[in-house]
Amino acid sequence: MEETWQLKLYVAGKTIKSAAALSNLKKYCEEYLKGKYKIEVIDLLVKPQLAEGDQIFAVPTLVKKVPEPIRKIIGDLSNKEKVLVGLNIIPVNKS
């Protein structure tokens, strides 16, 4: 059964870092998770109350809740390998 990667990217305004993170993320997803991912960008400047729920303290933070386990990746996601390991995409890639 196909799983959908539900990804939330927390940012604080349109900064260079958040833009970089978003474009990196989109790039990896297109490459490895084509058609089975969903990206939600949450701007904490607009919805600061959401920060507490996902325990966000740094931005940008990418949160993956589904599929389990929960993973958080902070930073501009420039290190491709770390992101892929973090998102448990590598095993998918292997197959």
Binding site: A12, A20, E52, A58, V59, R71, K72, I73, G86
Partner: peptide
């Protein structure tokens, strides 16, 4: 009360980031 929980095992760091999240939480 705000509990900032940082679960080391759940977190990966890649590249540049800042603590704006914390600032925003605190500010809120």
């Amino acid at each position: 009360l705000d509990y900032v929980h940082i679960e080391r095992s759940e977190i990966e760091e890649t590249g540049e980031y800042d603590l704006d999240g914390l600032f925003i939480r605190l500010g809120y």
